[in-house]
Design a protein around this nucleic acid. Structure first.
Lengths: 194, 194
DNA sequence: CCTCAAACTGAATGATCCTTCATATATTTA
DNA sequence: TAAATATATGAAGGATCATTCAGTTTGAGG
């Protein structure tokens, strides 16, 4: 619905421009071009609005990651790593404003549940993907998976919060990929590869 | 001063127990065992209180990192990496409550300046340390340094926000160290080592 | 054109909160 | 001890905000 989208967009913009403690129901409504009452027809609380915003975003992010993982079943591990980094990085920087706004809104409420759900989805999707790699020979796949996800997600977030120049960001991304691949090689039991 | 410490402690406890949007000057004063007026003798705003809290923490963290770096001048690179991870990890998990409370308070204000200062300190200290390693042969030290810091700090934070079991956390820490060292080996121009 | 329901409106309400300041208490100085 | 200075108090002012609801607008169906 157009009204709903307008409300979400307004929320994001205000979150970005003024920060979370200036995020007023009145202001959101005003910027969205509707009245406060209308907002309360879609969301019972202000919290519900922010919750819905995060849910929307994390669902979409989960979808993208699952799709990327599914699309690379059976690929070589190195390729999987490139994909994972690329997907996550692009999701974050593609609409950097949304990412930033949501990072800021996270504190407002108990969204640990949402994050938990997202983490589980990503965990499962990636574990399945890695398990399908023909050249995969790591002993403890669960540990391997947890490590990669934590490092990649954490690094991207941290990179995102420091104000890196596009150049630095691009470099960092390449280094991160290299690092993950080096880790894989450390963790792999030698088999009979090139 | 005792009063100041009481106020800081009260702030941390309330931040943890009730979250940032329940952090009231009145409540902080009450829990600290002083009156609101007293608080305003130490801090002109509520923002100033939170700012001071973050400043305090980041200064201390910067001190620890600088000390660790200084103490390992001339050590082998692998040892430096262990030290860096260990120092940061311990600082975060040592008083996990404080860490968590501050992560939550960050949103309240423009503390980008504080973070910037901290990042610069850490950058400089680590760069100097790495440059002093006898076995250091990476071409682009700046890039190397940025990568390591971003990955380590980002991973630790991310690990901290997911509710990992102590076991998982410990495992992850080990894997992170291994990963960083593997990266170093990738980045080093072969010389004449073992 | 009329009817009815769905969607929208925004002033009013009640609650919460930051900040101030006139006053009181403690501590130091003379 | 008395005056002066520093520190502490907390009720009250003034502002902001989430939420409500009585009434208005819109638009589809007859």
């Amino acid at each position: 619905m157009a009204t709903l989208d307008a409300i979400f967009e307004a929320t994001i913009q205000l979150l970005l421009r003024d920060g979370p403690h200036r995020l007023t129901t009145t202001r959101v409504a005003e910027r969205a071009g509707v009245s406060v009452g209308t907002m309360y027809q879609y969301f019972p609380h202000k919290k519900a609005l922010i919750y819905a915003l995060n849910e929307r975003y994390l669902d979409a992010l989960g979808d993208r990651i699952e799709a990327a993982c599914r699309a690379h079943h059976g690929a070589p591990v190195d390729r999987m790593i490139d994909t994972l980094i690329d997907t996550y990085w692009r999701a974050k920087t593609g609409r950097a404003d949304v990412t930033r706004a949501l990072y800021r809104s996270v504190v407002e409420m108990d969204n640990e549940a949402l994050i938990e759900v997202f983490a589980s989805r990503a965990d499962a999707a990636c574990a399945a993907m890695f398990a399908s790699a023909p050249d995969m020979t790591v002993a403890d796949l669960k540990r391997f998976n947890l490590t990669l996800l934590t490092v990649i997600f954490g690094t991207v977030r941290n990179a995102f919060e420091r104000n890196l120049s596009p150049n630095e960001a691009e470099e960092l991304r390449g280094e991160l990929a290299m690092m993950c691949k080096a880790y894989v090689r450390t963790r792999m039991i030698p088999h009979n590869q090139q």
